[in-house]
Amino acid sequence: MIKKLLLAIATLAASASFAFAQVEVNKADAAALDGVKGVGPSMSKAILDERAKGEFKDWADLQKRVKGLGDKKALKLTEAGLVVNGKGKEGASAKPAEKASKTTAKAKPEEGKAAM
C-alpha cells in the first residue's frame, strides 16, 4: 500500500515538473511537441517535416517554414514553453510559473489588510 502511494506521489511530482518545462523545437520528438498547449498532431508533423530539412535558426525561420504559425500563435506557444534555440518568441509575456509567483506576492499585502 505504501509503495503504491509513494509511486503515485512520484508520478504526480514528475508530471508537475514537466508542466513548466521548456520544449526545444529543434530537439523535441512528436510526443514532446504535442505536450505543448496549442500544438496538435498536425502541427507537430509539420514541425518535424520541416526540421528534417534543417534545424530552425530562430522564431522567424520557424514561422516562415511552418504553415499556420503566425505571431499570435507563436507568442502563445512561447508562453506554453516552446523555444527555438533556447529562446522564446520576443514579446511573449511571463511564463505561467512567474505569473503565479507575482500574483501570490501581490495577494499577500491585501490578505494582511483584510485581517486587520
Rank of each mutant, 00 (worst) to 15 (best):
M1H: 15
K3D: 15
K3L: 08
K4I: 07
K4W: 00
L5P: 02
L6Q: 15
A8W: 11
I9P: 13
I9C: 15
A10W: 00
T11A: 13
A13H: 03
A13C: 11
A14K: 07
A14S: 14
A16S: 14
F18C: 13
A19M: 11
A19P: 02
F20E: 14
A21W: 05
V23P: 00
V25L: 04
A28K: 01
D29C: 04
A30L: 09
A31V: 06
A31I: 05
L33H: 05
D34G: 11
D34M: 12
G38W: 00
G38I: 11
G38V: 13
V39H: 00
V39R: 02
V39F: 00
G40I: 03
P41R: 02
S42N: 08
A46W: 01
A46E: 13
L48K: 09
D49H: 05
E50N: 09
E50T: 13
A52L: 05
E55R: 06
F56R: 04
K57T: 13
D58S: 09
A60I: 03
D61N: 14
L62A: 13
Q63M: 11
K64C: 12
K64N: 12
K64W: 15
K67D: 15
G68M: 12
L69H: 08
G70T: 01
D71F: 03
A74P: 03
L77D: 04
T78S: 09
T78Q: 02
T78L: 01
E79S: 06
E79Q: 12
E79T: 12
G81W: 01
L82E: 10
L82T: 01
G86V: 13
K89I: 01
K89F: 00
K89W: 02
E90L: 04
G91T: 01
A92S: 06
A92F: 00
A92L: 02
S93W: 06
K95Q: 10
A97L: 10
A97C: 05
A97Y: 11
E98K: 03
K99F: 06
K99H: 08
K102M: 06
K102N: 12
K102H: 05
T103N: 10
T104A: 12
T104K: 06
A105D: 13
A105K: 07
K106Y: 01
K108S: 06
P109H: 05
P109W: 05
E111G: 02
E111P: 04
E111W: 08
G112T: 10
A115H: 10
A115N: 13
A115R: 03
M116G: 12
M116H: 14
